[in-house]
Write a protein that binds this DNA or RNA. Sequence first.
DNA 1: ATTGACAGAGCGAACGTTCATTCTCATATG
DNA 2: CATATGAGAATGAACGTTCGCTCTGTCAAT
Lengths: 222, 222
Amino acid sequence: MEQTATQTVDTDNAKHGSQPVSRADRREAQTIRIMEAAKRCFVRSGFQGASMNEICREAEMSPGALYRYFPSKESMIEAIAEADMAEDAKILAEMVDNPDVIDGFVSAAIGHLMHVHESGNAPLFTEIRAEGMRNEAVCQCCEASMRQTSEAIFNYLQAAVDRGEIKPRAPLDILLPVMMALGEGLVLADLPSKGIAISEIDKLMRAAVAANLRPVNRAGQV
Amino acid sequence: MEQTATQTVDTDNAKHGSQPVSRADRREAQTIRIMEAAKRCFVRSGFQGASMNEICREAEMSPGALYRYFPSKESMIEAIAEADMAEDAKILAEMVDNPDVIDGFVSAAIGHLMHVHESGNAPLFTEIRAEGMRNEAVCQCCEASMRQTSEAIFNYLQAAVDRGEIKPRAPLDILLPVMMALGEGLVLADLPSKGIAISEIDKLMRAAVAANLRPVNRAGQV
DNA sequence: ATTGACAGAGCGAACGTTCATTCTCATATG
DNA sequence: CATATGAGAATGAACGTTCGCTCTGTCAAT
């Protein structure tokens, strides 16, 4: 995933037989390179703490070049927050396939947890949350992603209610924000990095979710 | 709680019959004034985003004066993080009195939640978490407060286990971090500000906690 | 195929501003 | 009088951003 390339990205790939890299391809590759570098800097120093010089150094690029891709530092922050949130929302939305609603819900949360843990993006996630408290654009994109996720889960759970599989302890529009807040706490704490096994987290979370969604007949309550 | 005082704090209180305010008293009052002002600025702009000028303006004090109380911006951040964390830990530790362990646990979490909500410190809390990811001193004070809280709860729960009142679903040293992460998520989300009633949060949380602590005989599982 | 003009990409010095901090001096208190 | 406290201008560093410039690959016209 890392690149040691100079500023030429992959010009010499052509010599090795790859696609001849069009203008647009190169531009996209460079944009990604900058965003990856910026992410690393933001994780290390925070949105406001990371300087454009630091980002330039990390991306092995001059300020003049970097500013051809992003018109301002603000726009980079927004782009990264948006990409990160979109990625999270996408992962969470994938659970809709699982027919067992408790299992689907829990494993989506665990999947999200593991993804953030493995990508080392827990600090970035925290940073985005903090920035969203005062930056209008970042706040909007957080809320948009949250709303999107929330709606997907809502429909998923509502269908299970309609099918008579669960009998939630509270109306879904109250239960959902509460459950999402719990899940977010779990993600932010990054417990796997503190040596706590996923299987244990899964077990405890499953019990908590089952206690609130209340599956009607099948096993699961212990 | 707000002060409209000029830079004289309460010199003229002496004329009205208050204590004659010693040097030390005045110094302490000024220190508190600066910290309150700084907290407001940090909530508004973030640790790195708030400038010393902004803090000086908020505290109605010149830079020269302010630097007589704190040697650097860093030291202000550390002092505020420490004070905030200590306050949180204190509130959470108070639950140890409640003989019903489920109720004690849940109402401590809810109490913490309400305190952060009412003091409007949710953004500060978020900011401290983010800063703790990269600032060694802030990280240490977060961990110290966490450890303190964790130990208090551990002993509280362990006693209940020994008394045979609960039968936790996992060893306490695993269950505790997980529960604390969930609680922190709840605090950070500041759900009351989104119109979700405390009674609902309490109900859902109680069910989740009961499902994991598993009280042995009395009512509570529904 | 060769040429020549052009646009995109990159560089790095330089800009004006703002930052945290310090200095000097005045005032007020014990 | 000695000392603590405060004001506010001054300081140098660092910031985000812009500028003028070069280099290079693309492509139409020849």
